[in-house]
Write a protein that binds this DNA or RNA. Structure first.
Length: 489
RNA sequence: GCCCCCAUCGUCUAGAGGCCUAGGACGCCACCCUUUCAAGGUGGAGAUCAGGGGUUCGAAUCCCCUUGGGGGCACCA
């Protein structure tokens, strides 16, 4: 079995492309097949090497690897079926279109876009299917020669036979189309660049692809491909059309309505293993109630035959949940390592490691870390700017209660030396202080929490104090008291 | 407009004729734990299986129709 993914570098890696790539990858691995990456860059106007890099890097990031094709953006090919970039295969396409021309399966067409548009309008007015009227197929030799002599550029059209096309789709079963409804479509543009439907067929043959697994949006294009395959005398691969990933309104997932670029999710701090797990379950399930799977396990369990037919909405809540599951499953050391990019360089590795237990179970995405523990490395003024004096008030209480708690804290913290400034001791002393003041523990802690972290929601208070250290903690409590006073004045 | 595909809680899904008075997960709501928030635990609301016809002793599961949704019909991929 040989399968492939064929992204077009006309944009960053799309969630849908990633999922299709994943399904291909899993199928190849599960069946012991070969996986090929082909870059479909015939749209020279929109393709860039930067997009190619985004696609390849993100695929690697997800843990998807391939046996043939470029491994690095702009890099050399690996594999015996290259080149793997369509822009480097132009000669082959030219030869194959020449064969089609010669056999009469394709013909030159000189119609201008304006002429085509006029015909289309007429057909619409008559409620006919809009398709090419074959004017150029029926040209006399003299007319043809005249156009050619004129030097007018021409496209090459494939002559579609009026016949039913039937195939057994790997996920949908028997599907039948009537090619009599199809018009003769263009396979080579008038500037000589071959078009998608044509190159995809040429390449799949050249790369000996046996199973074409792609999005359902290609289902109705398949009869075109099969017609082309037959005209060229190629081997017909099996086709499998997987369901689409949908926007919240059930339309095909799009940039307009959803965040579709993998890079964006990566930058928010989703883990690749969570993304893979999530994507795999959008349209597939093992048929059991298990739902947390590593890539390895997916390779083992994935079966194309269990892929669904209906589309699935991309549900961020579910992704978030899974991401949390994977984050919590990481060791402190592993999580600290992953967090490195989200935390300032000034924060030392061993400090970061100590911070990890404070946030591990409240992290949804890695990118949430700064808002949770930023108070540790941000300067006092910055943290103070995060809150207004009213936030210092305990739930049931106002400025007097806040002041009492903060002054109590100032005294308690001041009594401890650096060696005793640990979460355990801190908690014990603060509880005693709360008792002395006849305050509920929670009411006593709230003003301190806000003074220290700048927020009403934070990691556990005493561990936070310990991380901050005696001097900075005292300074922040003092700042808070001052802030309270300013309002009173 | 034409062609094709699809249809189980809000969402992802289990379900391949009797195990289904439809199960799980996310989300939501309560309660417990608790210094906040999470995490965790317990419980709950939530689907007449889109609707209607068949087939069958028996249908979420098979067939047909309707409805709804989606995709495709480019000198984009």
């Amino acid at each position: 079995m040989r399968v492939r993914m064929a992204p077009s570098p006309t944009g960053p890696l799309h969630i849908g492309t990633a999922r299709t790539s994943l399904y291909n990858y899993l199928t190849a691995r599960h069946e012991g097949g070969t996986y090929v990456l082909r870059i479909e860059d015939t749209d020279t106007a929109r393709s860039t090497v930067d997009f190619e890099r985004d696609i390849i890097d993100n695929l690697h990031w997800l843990g998807i690897s391939w046996d043939e094709g470029p491994q690095v953006a702009g890099g050399d090919d690996v594999g015996a079926h290259g080149p793997y970039r369509q822009s480097q295969r132009l000669e082959r396409y030219r030869e194959e279109s020449a064969r089609l021309l010669e056999s009469g399966a394709a013909y030159h067409c000189w119609c201008t876009p304006e002429e085509l548009e006029a015909v289309r309008k007429e057909q619409e007015a008559r409620k006919e299917a809009p398709r090419y009227n074959r004017r150029c197929l029926n040209l006399s030799d003299e007319e043809r020669a005249a156009f050619a002599a004129e030097g007018r550029p021409s496209v090459i059209r494939f002559r579609v036979e009026a016949e039913p096309i039937r195939f057994d789709d790997l996920v949908r079963g028997e599907v039948e189309f009537d090619n009599a409804l199809l018009g003769d479509f263009v396979i080579v543009r008038n500037d000589g660049m071959p078009l998608y439907h044509f190159v995809v067929v040429v390449d799949d043959e050249a790369m000996e692809i046996t199973h074409v697994i792609r999005g359902e949006d290609h289902l109705s294009n398949t009869p075109k491909h099969i017609a082309l395959i037959r005209a060229l005398g190629y081997h017909e691969p099996r086709f499998g059309h997987i369901p689409l990933i949908l926007n919240a309104d059930r339309s095909k997932m799009s940039k307009r309505k959803s965040q579709t670029s993998m890079t964006a999710y990566r930058e928010e701090g989703y883990l690749p293993e969570a993304m893979v797990n999530f994507l795999a379950f959008l349209g597939w399930s093992p048929g059991t109630e298990e739902e947390v799977f590593t890539l390895d396990e997916l390779e083992d369990r994935f079966e194309l035959s269990k892929v669904h037919k209906g589309g699935a909405i991309f549900d961020r809540d579910r992704l978030d949940h899974l991401n949390g599951v994977y984050i919590r499953a990481l060791s402190d050391e592993q999580l600290a390592l992953r967090l490195r990019g989200w935390v300032p360089d000034a924060v030392r590795d061993d400090d970061l490691l100590h911070l990890v237990p404070l946030i591990k179970e409240r992290l949804v995405k890695l990118g949430d870390a700064p808002s949770l523990i930023g108070f540790v490395w941000e300067p006092d003024e910055v943290v103070a700017s995060w809150y207004s004096p009213e936030l210092l008030h305990p739930k049931k209480g106002g400025p007097p209660e806040a002041r009492a708690a903060l002054e109590g804290a100032l005294r308690v913290l001041g009594e401890l030396d650096d060696a005793d400034f640990s979460a355990d001791v801190l908690e014990q002393r603060c509880r005693e202080a709360a008792d002395d003041l006849a305050m509920k523990a929670g009411d006593f802690f709230t003003p301190i929490r806000v003074a220290i972290t700048g927020r009403t929601v934070s990691p556990p208070l005493f561990a936070s104090l310990e991380m901050l250290g005696r001097d900075r903690s005292l300074a922040r409590v003092a700042d808070a008291i001052e802030k309270l006073a300013e309002v009173a004045a």
